[in-house]
Amino acid sequence: MNLIYLILPIALLIAAGFVFAFVWATRQGQFDDMDTPSMRILGEDDEIDVGPAKKVESNSPGTTD
């Protein structure tokens, strides 16, 4: 049971690590926009049935040499 004197501070240190990770992420702006990411995920996996998208301006290089 005396082990608790060691384990509890370690547990709190780990928790502190996560708190600082959260503070860092927030300061980086990770939580600035909380609406769009949930919508972004909706459209991500249907690339296959769309087929290759056409470009408005063709940027395929011609035989320039």
Binding site: M39, R40, G43, K55, V56, S58
Partner: peptide, 18 residues
């Protein structure tokens, strides 16, 4: 106005060169 707009606008690089 909706989630489809997010998709359409973020697809913009694939239809506009540069």
């Amino acid at each position: 106005h909706c989630a489809a707009c997010v998709w359409l606008i973020e697809k913009f690089p694939s239809i506009h060169a540069g």
